[in-house]
Design a protein around this nucleic acid. Structure first.
Length: 491
RNA sequence: GGUCUCGUAGUAUAACGGUUAGUACAACGGGUUUUCAUCCCGUCAACGCGGGUUCGACUCCCGCCGAGAUCACCA
């Protein structure tokens, strides 16, 4: 039984955004599911578009998502190197096979001339095919071609115009006619291969069994199949993955649409589990109503034939929903201690020197309000520093505005006096105290609790009152209640 | 223009000839002793159009319409 091998083969032209990372996720899942290998290959044959450091960005994103590769940069493998720019000799070798087979020719036609051909055909309203404009060098014998070929002379494939049929694992049975077969460039003027040639050579060399990539390559398939035949290669399985669509319009999501990099979501406090879960389920489902998948569950449940064949729109609102689910899932299943390390770097500046166990307690009462970890930055200040006292926030509160200032002050006084004597500041203990205070106040819960909540936090929202007070502790609570009472008195 | 692909609510999807067309996000309303959120309950909302085939079509066939991809010495 042949070992399953899949690959992700990005070009180092910048960061990986959520529009293209899915073509890493599905191959990864296929490899893991079958006990096969997942290869990372860097397709850097376009020197003009090469961006320094982009490879690291790609590696970083894959690692964060948990898509570890078995062969590729850093880890090596049996087909090193995994950078196409370092495999130049190999492509030349394979190109010579094509020359010897009479299926490749030298072409020094200037790009301007090619443009001219294109224009002429367009005016004649016939489809532009380069094979209708083959130069004289196309008739040279393999020996002559080989003898004249040197770096700097582009090499073209000699197409075999006919019907092609193949199976796309996602799109189904495909067939095209001879009109789409053309002479594609194999080796460029700079001596490096084009994508069209290099990736086929590499996939063959690396024994890739499943080629997954965006649907934009679907229309190039006949030319690739011609190449397979000319080289005597077996066809792997092909998966054309539909595009992830931009928020507006129906076009493929790209950087121009503001597609964020995968790691930008990491920096915003999205968990990799949530991102992987969401992206995997954007355009795939297992037929059940299950929504939340761990990586292992995805590996187990994934199947190629349930990949959606229409484009799916990326929904930032839903990724945040997934993230909230995952924050709670980790806390509830693995404990707050497991979630806590993930919050590193997401606390407000004022929490910098606070003890870990205190922050852990804050997290434990506020985690179910988080959509992203970075919400901690804006939601927890008052746990670490005394809030600015703003009497108007109390006076204008929808539940409190009907109470007089005198009443408010009396309620605060009553609370301060009672809490002064309380020794048990546990959540349960405070729950009881607050219930008794509420009864004694004669106010509605919304009135009394809102007052105390605002008096100690001056925040638009906060966790349950007894939890908030318990975590803050008697000293802070009493000081803040006093400060608020003083401010109201002076108002 | 040639070739190819796609088409269920605002979004993501289920259904694989017979269901009141299911689910999730969003929106809206309600419930849980305050707020925000979680959680729970509910409401709104979809088969692109037109022909066939069939006792019966979201499902099969044809046409149309709409959307997208591709036609580079970019990948």
């Amino acid at each position: 039984m042949e070992e399953i091998k899949t690959r992700f083969a990005p070009s180092p032209t910048g960061y990986i955004h959520i529009g293209n990372v899915r073509s890493a996720i599905y191959p990864y899942l296929i490899a893991r599911q079958t006990g096969g290998k997942f290869i990372l290959r860097i397709e850097d044959t376009d020197r003009a578009r090469y961006v320094d450091g982009a490879t690291e960005l790609i590696e970083d994103a894959l690692k964060w998502l948990g898509l570890e590769w078995d062969e590729g940069p850093i880890v090596g493998g049996p087909n090193e190197p995994y950078f196409q720019s370092e495999r130049e000799d190999l492509y030349i070798e394979w190109a010579k096979k094509l020359i010897n087979a009479g299926r490749a020719y030298l072409d020094e036609t200037a790009p301007e001339i090619v443009d001219q051909y294109r224009k002429e055909d367009s005016e004649k309203k016939i489809p532009f095919l380069y094979r209708n404009h083959r130069p004289d060098t196309a008739d040279l014998s393999p020996e002559e071609t080989l003898a004249r070929w040197k770096k700097g002379i582009p090499l073209r494939f000699k197409a075999d115009p006919k019907n092609y049929e193949w199976t796309d694992e996602v799109m189904g049975e495909m067939h095209t006619g001879p009109e789409v077969c053309d002479d594609i460039i194999l080796i460029k003027k700079d001596g490096l291969p084009t994508y069209n040639f290099a990736h086929n050579v590499d996939d063959a060399e690396m024994n890739v069994t499943h080629i997954a990539r965006g649907v934009e390559y679907l229309s190039s398939m006949p030319n690739y199949l011609a190449l397979y035949e000319a080289l005597g290669l077996n066809r792997p399985k092909f998966l054309s993955l539909p595009h992830i669509l931009a928020p507006q319009g129906n076009k493929k999501l790209g950087k121009r649409d503001g597609a964020k990099s995968v790691t930008e979501y990491r920096d915003d406090g999205v968990l990799p589990e949530a991102m992987l879960n969401y992206l995997a389920c954007l355009g795939w489902n297992d037929g059940t109503e299950k929504e939340i998948y761990t990586k292992d569950e995805l590996i187990k449940a994934f199947s190629i034939d349930r990949i959606q064949n229409s484009g799916a729109r990326f929904d930032e609102v839903k990724i945040y929903w997934y993230n909230g689910q995952w924050i709670r899932k980790i806390a509830d299943e693995q404990g707050m201690e497991a979630l806590y390390p993930r919050t590193n770097g997401f606390w407000p500046e004022v929490a910098k020197n606070e003890p870990e166990d205190y922050k852990l307690r804050v997290l434990s009462i506020i985690y179910d309000r988080l959509k992203t970890l970075s919400d901690l930055k804006t939601m927890t200040d008052y746990f670490f520093v005394d809030p600015e006292v703003k009497p108007e926030m109390i006076l204008e509160n929808k539940f409190l505005k009907k109470l007089s200032e005198t009443e408010l002050i009396e309620l605060l006084t009553m609370t301060i006096e009672r809490l002064n004597d309380v020794k048990d500041w546990s959540e349960d203990g405070l729950q009881n105290e607050l219930n008794e205070l509420l009864a004694k106040s004669g106010k509605k819960p919304a009135e009394y609790f809102s007052l105390i909540r605002l008096a100690v936090s001056f925040a638009p929202f906060s966790p349950a009152l007894h939890q908030t007070l318990s975590v803050l502790g008697s000293e802070k609570v009493l000081a803040r209640l006093n400060a608020t009472r003083t401010a109201l008195s002076n108002n």
